[in-house]
Design a protein around this nucleic acid. Structure first.
Ligand SMILES: [Mn+2]
Ligand SMILES: [Mn+2]
Ligand SMILES: [Zn+2]
Ligand SMILES: [Zn+2]
Lengths: 132, 132
DNA sequence: CAAGTAGTTTAGAACGATTTTAAAGTAAAA
DNA sequence: TTTTACTTTAAAATCGTTCTAAACTACTTG
C-alpha cells in the first residue's frame, strides 16, 4: 500500500504536506523523533512547512494510529514510528530511546485491572545508565 | 526521622519553604501531583510560596531522591511521593495514575541490557480505558 | 468540467509550563 | 559577630505548543 492509500485509509486527505511527512515517516524504518527533528528532515528533503502544520499533522497521524507518542518526562513531545506494541530502553541522561521488541519481554504476573476498566496495553520501560 | 533530618541527610538546608513542602509531601502518603497541585496545598495550609521556589524545591527534592518524577506525555510535570520501585496504571483519557506495588508484577523474561550500560530500574505501565 | 463546500495550511499571535534574572533575605561557617 | 554561600522572590524571559483567521486546496455535486 502506498502512502496516498495509507492516508486515505486513515481518513486523512492526502495533501501535499501530509504526503511529504508520510514519505519521511512511513518508510518502514522505526524511529523516535520530535516535531523539530521532523522539521529538519523536511528541510533537508528540499521542502519546507509551517511548524503549525507539522504539529497538526503529527496530532492527526497519532490520532489515526499511523504513529505513536511516547510517554516521556522531557518537555518536548517524542513520537515513534513503531506502532507495534513494544517496549523501550531509556538512557535518562541523554533521553535516548531504544526499542525492545514485544517478544523480548515476558510478564509472569500482572495485577488485576481496576474495576470498570479494560487493559489497553502494557509497556515496559527499562532505564539504563552508561557504565563508568 | 523528622523532616528536618531528612532534608539535612539529603544535603539540603532546611529552609522555611522546604520544611513547608516536606511537611506536605513526606507524610508517608503516596500521591501523584503537579507543581500547581502542590501550590494549592501550600495555600490551603495557610502558607504561600513563589511558584519559582516550588519548582526549585521539586527539582531539588527529585535530584536528592526524596520524590520521583513520572514519565508522562502530558505537558505538565507529574511528581510522585512513592519513591519505592513500583508500577502504574494510567487512564490515558483523564491522566489518572494508580500505583501498582512492585510485587504485583513479575517479569519472566527481560532483554539483554545494551553493551556499556547498566540496568537502572524497570517500570511497567498498564494503560487502562473506562469500560463502555 | 464548474461551482460549491468542507477541510487544510500558514504566519503570527497567544498560551501555559517552566526557567532565568538579579536583588533581597537567610542559614551555616569562620 | 562577621562573612560567606546558598535560597527565595517577583517579574521577565523562554520555549514548546496551540489558536486565529485569512488564503488555499481537495473533494463533492450538478
Ligand atoms: Mn512530558
Ligand atoms: Mn511546555
Ligand atoms: Zn519505540
Ligand atoms: Zn506512583
Amino acid at each position: 500500500m502506498n502512502n496516498k492509500e495509507k492516508l486515505r485509509k486513515a481518513g486523512l486527505r492526502p495533501t501535499k504536506q501530509r504526503m511529504i511527512i508520510a514519505d519521511i515517516l512511513l518508510d518502514g524504518v522505526n524511529r523516535h523523533f520530535t516535531a523539530e527533528n521532523l522539521q529538519n528532515e523536511i528541510n533537508a528533503s528540499g521542502n519546507s512547512m509551517s511548524i503549525a502544520t507539522i504539529y497538526n499533522c503529527l496530532k492527526n497521524f497519532r490520532n489515526c494510529g499511523l504513529i505513536k507518542q511516547v510517554e516521556s518526562s522531557k518537555d518536548t513531545a517524542i513520537f515513534d514510528t513503531n506502532i507495534n506494541q513494544h517496549h523501550h530502553f531509556l538512557d535518562e541522561e541523554t533521553g535516548e530511546l531504544i526499542d525492545i521488541e514485544n517478544d523480548e519481554v515476558n510478564l509472569r504476573k500482572l495485577p488485576k485491572i481496576p474495576q470498570g476498566y479494560l487493559n489497553n496495553g502494557v509497556e515496559v520501560l527499562i532505564k539504563i545508565k552508561k557504565q563508568i
